[in-house]
């Protein structure tokens, strides 16, 4: 699944903050909204938004997932693009909402809603053609792409293009970029040992790049990777790409 461009450059976009960002990484969400606003867009944040419903869907609770999906659709009534600072939540809304409602009366409106969902970095690159001025000190970073961003949203190169466009940022490639970090939502606590083995290997792969900072587009992965690195007392920090881009180009929001 990949995006298709909206018919014209929108004046107004919705921002779907995601439940994880809402509680744990609000600065990343705010940075994403500021990036869009500085690009000249009116950014609307409907307060009725909560969660995309993916946790329920991934655990097999489809009725619950559908109920929450419908509430989100109600919260975003206008025909504006919905920008999501997460490949995982964007994938849920873009790819899995239509599956959840296949053959149901809501299917047409769900399909129309899903088609308006964009992953943030894809939107910045392809719709806004965002240009950033790097005001930060020289730094070396590596990139972690989430599984959903890569495989559901087709977002692979976009975030790296943004990072490479920053003149003082050196991006080093992660040799195991396509491999899952072991987060997987409830997987991380239902299969704690397997998940731990995966994230331990992920931290080692990230460290092998020589970078001491990892940038990602998904806060679930970040929470997992930086949490595991910190627990193991590794010298590796991380940030969400929106926050990273915003800080490099404008300072803290």
């Amino acid at each position: 699944m990949t995006h298709s461009l909206p018919p014209h450059r929108p004046d107004t976009v919705y921002f779907f903050g995601t439940c994880l960002i809402d509680l744990f990484y609000p600065q990343a969400g705010l940075a994403g909204m500021e990036l869009l606003r500085r690009a000249g867009l009116r950014v609307v944040f409907p307060p009725a938004q909560t969660c995309c419903g993916q946790p329920a869907r991934n655990n097999g609770y489809m009725d619950e997932a559908r109920a929450i999906a419908l509430r989100q659709m109600e919260a975003f009534p206008q025909d504006w693009p919905i920008v999501v600072p997460s490949g995982s939540c964007a994938g849920m809304m873009r790819v899995h909402y239509p599956q959840l409602f296949a053959g149901r009366p809501e299917a047409p409106q769900v399909g129309a809603f899903a088609a308006r969902v964009y992953e943030l970095t894809w939107f910045l690159v392809h719709v806004l053609d965002l240009k950033l001025e790097d005001k930060g000190e020289p730094v070396t970073v590596t990139w972690h792409g989430s599984c959903s961003a890569q495989r559901e949203m087709g977002v692979v190169d976009e975030p790296k293009r943004l990072l490479r466009s920053l003149t003082n940022v050196t991006l080093v490639e992660n040799p195991r970029e396509t491999e899952c970090c072991g987060f997987g939502g409830t997987f991380s606590v239902k299969q704690p040992e397997v998940s731990a083995a995966m994230v331990s290997d992920k931290v080692a792969a990230l460290e092998s790049t020589g970078a001491r900072h990892v940038v990602s587009g998904d806060c679930g992965c970040l929470m997992n990777i930086t949490g595991a690195a910190a627990k193991a007392r590794r010298d590796l920090t991380g940030s969400h790409i929106a926050e990273f881009l915003w800080e490099r180009s404008h300072g803290r929001p």
């Binding site: 921002f15 903050g17 809402d22 969400g29 705010l30 909204m33 606003r37 950014v43 609307v44 944040f45």
Partner: peptide, 15 residues
């Protein structure tokens, strides 16, 4: 503070 709170403070439109 939640993003909901920060968005409201940051002057972002609600609808």
């Amino acid at each position: 503070r939640t993003l909901h709170e920060l968005a409201a403070r940051g002057g972002f439109d609600r609808e």
